[in-house]
Design a protein around this nucleic acid. Structure first.
Length: 479
DNA sequence: TGAAATGTTGGGGCG
DNA sequence: ACGCCCCAACATTTC
C-alpha cells in the first residue's frame, strides 16, 4: 500500500498565494502531489490556442519555481484528465484531492464526472473558488435569475464581497514522491507548449509571468497609473492599461488580491469596474455555457452575416486599409496581446464593416491572444456584435478614423505597428487615402502597393450595417 | 465603452 | 445703424 497523499490538481490557478485548494491540501498534513495535466483530448473543453500555450509555458515555469522554493514539486502529464487523474490518485493512494473550480460548461461537466468517480473510489474531493470575487451562483437578480445587465450585477456583487481575508502562501510543503505505477510524468519542456519551428513568439515581449510578475504589474498600476486610469486606459499611444489579463487568466493573481489592494476611489473605481466586467463575463458563461458559440440574443440567429473568406483573411492579416484596424491586428501578431480599445475597434470592424460572423473573430482571438479567456472573449465579442448581454446598441458603429484621431492623436500607435505608414503626418496617418499625392510620395507610401486601399468604404459599410441591424431590431418591436 | 445628421445660437462681414 | 447671411461652435436628435 502506498503512503497516503494529498493531490493538488492545478488548472488556471497557477499560484501559491491566496490559493484555497493548495492551502487546504497543505493543512491536511499529508505529503503533497502537485499535478498539471495538459489535456487537449477530453471531449468538450476547448484546448488552449497557440499564443495561450506559449503564455501557459511561462506560467507553469513560474509556478514550478514558486512551489520548489517552498519544498513542493510540480509534476506534468499530457492526455485526457478523466483517465490520468484517477490513475495517479490510485497509484498514489491519494486520500484527498484538491482543485479550484472552473466555470465553462464542458469543464464543469468533466470536473463533476471526475469528482463522482474519485469519491466512488473512496477519496475525498474538495473544490474551491480561486478565479472569481464571488461564485456565479451567489449573485442573483431580484427575480432569482442571472443578471443580464452589467450595472445591477456589479452593484449586487459589490454588496456580496466580504473584505477579503487573503490566504498567505503555505510554507514548508512536503512533496510526495511520484508513485510507482502512475503514468510517467514529463518535463515541462516535453509538453512542447512553446512554438519551435517556426518560433513565431520569438519577438513577443517577456510576459514576466507568475506571481512576482503579476504583483509587479499591479503595483506599477496602483503606484503610477491609477490616477489617470479612467482616461489613459483608452489611449492607444499610452501605457495606461493594467496588463493584468493574462496573469488573471492563468490565475497567477486572484481577483480578490486585486480587489483588496485597490482603493475604491478615484481611478481605482474605474479599474475595479473592469474587473467587474471580467466577473460579469464569467457570470454570463456560467448561466449560458454555450456563450462562445451561440448568440446570447437569439434574434441574431437570423442575421445575414456574409461569408467572405477573402475579407476575413484581410482582417486577420491586418490588410484592411484602415491603419488603426491594421495596427491592432499587427499588435496581436507581433506581441500576442491587443490593447482593449483596439480590440473593440477591430471587432467592430469585422462584425459591422465587413458583416462577418463574430464567431470567426472569436476563434481567431482564441488562437492569437496570449490572454485568451473563454468567458471574456465570448462575452466581449457578443457585446461588440450587438447580440450579447448589455450589448452596445446596434447603431453604435466605430469609425476607425475618428477613433484614431481621438485615442491615437499623433498616430504613435499606428506608426509603431505599421512602420510602412510612419512617414505620414498626423493629419493623414489614420486616413492615407485622403492624403495628397505629394504627401504620400514624401512618406514613401504607395497605396495599393506598400499599403492597401480600404477594403470597404466606411460610409457605405456603416449604412449597410445599420440597415441590416435595424431590420433585426424592427422585428423586436413586433414580437 | 459612437457617429452622423439636424437644429440652434451668436459673432462678424457686408450691403 | 440695421438686417441679412454665412458659418463655426455647440446642442440635440436620430441612426
Amino acid at each position: 500500500m502506498p503512503k497516503p497523499t494529498a493531490l493538488v490538481w492545478f488548472r488556471n490557478d497557477l499560484r501559491v498565494s491566496d490559493h484555497a485548494a493548495l492551502t487546504a491540501a497543505a493543512a491536511s498534513g499529508l505529503p503533497l502531489l502537485c499535478l498539471y495535466i495538459l489535456d487537449e483530448e477530453s471531449p468538450g473543453p476547448r484546448p488552449p490556442g497557440g499564443a495561450s500555450r506559449w503564455r501557459l509555458d511561462h506560467a507553469l515555469a513560474a509556478l514550478e519555481e514558486d512551489l520548489a522554493a517552498r519544498g513542493g514539486k510540480l509534476h506534468f502529464l499530457r492526455g485526457p484528465a478523466e483517465e490520468l487523474l484517477p490513475e495517479v490518485a490510485r497509484a498514489a493512494g491519494a486520500q484527498k484531492i484538491f482543485w479550484s473550480r472552473r466555470y465553462g460548461g464542458a469543464e464543469i461537466a468533466l470536473d463533476a464526472r471526475l469528482k463522482a468517480a474519485l469519491r466512488e473510489s473512496g477519496r475525498e474531493v474538495h473544490s474551491f473558488n480561486a478565479a472569481l470575487l464571488a461564485e456565479p451562483w451567489q449573485v442573483k437578480s431580484k427575480s432569482g435569475g442571472a443578471f443580464k445587465v452589467f450595472t445591477p450585477f456589479w452593484r449586487a456583487l459589490r454588496e456580496k464581497i466580504a473584505p477579503p481575508a487573503l490566504l498567505p502562501a503555505p510554507q514548508n510543503l512536503v512533496a510526495a514522491p511520484w508513485p510507482d505505477g502512475a503514468p510517467q510524468p514529463l518535463a515541462r519542456e516535453a509538453l512542447a507548449l512553446a512554438p519551435a519551428k517556426p518560433d513565431w513568439a520569438r519577438n513577443f515581449p517577456d510576459p514576466d509571468a507568475g506571481e512576482a510578475g503579476a504583483r509587479k504589474r499591479l503595483f506599477d498600476l496602483l503606484d503610477r497609473k491609477i490616477d489617470h486610469y479612467p482616461t489613459h486606459r483608452d489611449r492607444l499611444d499610452f501605457d495606461g492599461t493594467s496588463h493584468l489579463s493574462a496573469h488573471l487568466h492563468f490565475g497567477e493573481m486572484s481577483p480578490r488580491q486585486i480587489f483588496g489592494a485597490t482603493p475604491p476611489s478615484g481611478g481605482g473605481d474605474k479599474f475595479l469596474a473592469e474587473l467587474g466586467w471580467r466577473e460579469f463575463s464569467y457570470h454570463l458563461l456560467y448561466a449560458h455555457p454555450e456563450l462562445s458559440w451561440r448568440n446570447f440574443n437569439p434574434r441574431f440567429d437570423a442575421f445575414p452575416y456574409r461569408k467572405d473568406e477573402a475579407a476575413l483573411e484581410a482582417w486577420r492579416r491586418g490588410k484592411t486599409g484602415y491603419p488603426l484596424v491594421d495596427a491592432a491586428l499587427r499588435e496581436l501578431w507581433t506581441t500576442g496581446f491587443m490593447h482593449n480599445r483596439a480590440r473593440m475597434i477591430a471587432a467592430s470592424f469585422l462584425t459591422k464593416h465587413l458583416l462577418i460572423d463574430w464567431r470567426e473573430g472569436e476563434k481567431f482571438f482564441w488562437d492569437a491572444l496570449a490572454d485568451a479567456d473563454e468567458a471574456s472573449n465570448a462575452a466581449s465579442w457578443q457585446w461588440v456584435a450587438g447580440c450579447g448581454a448589455d450589448a452596445a446598441p446596434y447603431f453604435r458603429i466605430f469609425n476607425p478614423v475618428l477613433q484614431g484621431e481621438k485615442y491615437d492623436p499623433d498616430g504613435a500607435y499606428v506608426r509603431r505597428f505599421r512602420p510602412e505608414l510612419a512617414g505620414l503626418p498626423a493629419a493623414y496617418i489614420h486616413k492615407p487615402w485622403s492624403a495628397p499625392e505629394a504627401v504620400l510620395a514624401r512618406a514613401g507610401v504607395r497605396l495599393g502597393e506598400t499599403y492597401p486601399h480600404p477594403i470597404v468604404d466606411h460610409d457605405f459599410a456603416r449604412r449597410r450595417a445599420l440597415a441590416a441591424l435595424a431590420a433585426l431590431a424592427a422585428g423586436d418591436t413586433h414580437r
